[in-house]
């Protein structure tokens, strides 16, 4: 299947949260009791039953207010830190660009949750498994749009082949930049290129997004340096003791040792 792309145009988003509801409906996730977090935001973070929600930031400038609304879900990176962190080979990529968790392999260790630069995967403590947005891979593989894209009334969530959607996204940015030079795409150049790409109308931090999300250095150190060096250390140690035994045998040290002990026993007996 060709590489897919989901384009989230924040300039069209009305903050209706229907995406969140549609996600629940398709993925059989029950509604949860919500409370006001700030502005119109009613969901603080992802939960095992909420894989996408809208974050609201109110921005005041020249006595005007603008909602910076952002539908959050997994970015489905091309080069995901969660997958690098996973020690159980439970996270994998699809040809279509999706990043998925194999729940049978997941052991709930939380390495993915600790290393995602956007804090997307989380551990469902009750199930002891990691969870996150699946990108509605089951729908996509059957030729349908993800539930959130299907339901979005203002058309703020566009889904299709990357080659088809990307030019549309770039055209939309060019259009907006005529009046707002801050308009830009967020995601397509991050973490190897994300499947979910945003059009932002301000700096990423105005939406509560990291400016430069990267794979943590500690993760690279762990997987690419500590593992091979640790393996080499163990291998070298095992090789050294094998040589040690052989060299001691050849030198006759074991035979001498036995003789010495016999001698000292004789001595002790006297």
């Amino acid at each position: 299947m060709a590489r897919k792309m989901v384009f989230i145009d924040t300039s069209l988003c009305t903050g209706c949260k229907a995406c969140s509801v549609a996600c629940k409906a398709w993925n059989d996730l029950p509604a949860e009791k919500t409370q006001r977090i700030s502005s119109y935001q009613t969901q603080a973070d992802f939960t095992p039953n909420t894989w996408t929600y809208v974050r609201f930031r109110e921005e005041y400038k020249d006595k005007k207010m603008r909602f910076n609304m952002l539908k959050l879900q997994c970015f489905h990176c091309a080069d995901p830190a969660c997958m690098k962190a996973c020690s159980s080979q439970a996270i994998y990529k699809t040809e279509s660009g999706y990043t998925l968790i194999d729940k049978d392999k997941c052991i709930g260790c939380g390495y993915c949750a600790a290393n995602c630069p956007w804090g997307v995967p989380k551990i469902d403590e009750a199930a002891n498994k990691a969870y996150k947005c699946t990108g509605c891979i089951d729908r996509v593989e059957s030729g349908m749009k993800p539930a959130c894209a299907q339901t979005c009334q203002p058309g703020a969530i566009q889904f299709g082949d990357y080659d088809e959607i990307m030019p549309q996204a770039q055209a939309r940015v060019a259009e907006l930049q005529l009046t707002n030079p801050k308009a830009h795409l967020y995601g397509n150049e991050l973490m190897g290129g994300t499947t979910y790409v945003y059009l932002l109308q301000d700096r990423p931090d105005a939406y509560g997004l990291p400016l430069n999300p990267t794979t943590p250095i500690s993760l690279t150190l762990w997987k690419d340096i500590v593992y091979p060096l640790g393996g080499i250390a163990i291998g070298a140690s095992a090789a050294a003791i094998t040589c040690g035994v052989i060299v001691n045998l050849v030198r006759g040290n074991y035979a001498n040792r036995a003789k010495n002990i016999a001698a000292s026993h004789d001595e002790g007996g006297k």
């Binding site: 600790a114 943590p216 500690s218 150190l221 762990w222 500590v226 593992y227």
Partner: peptide, 8 residues
């Protein structure tokens, strides 16, 4: 994040 490589 740093506890992981140190532990390993």
């Amino acid at each position: 994040q740093w506890a992981y490589p140190i532990h390993a």
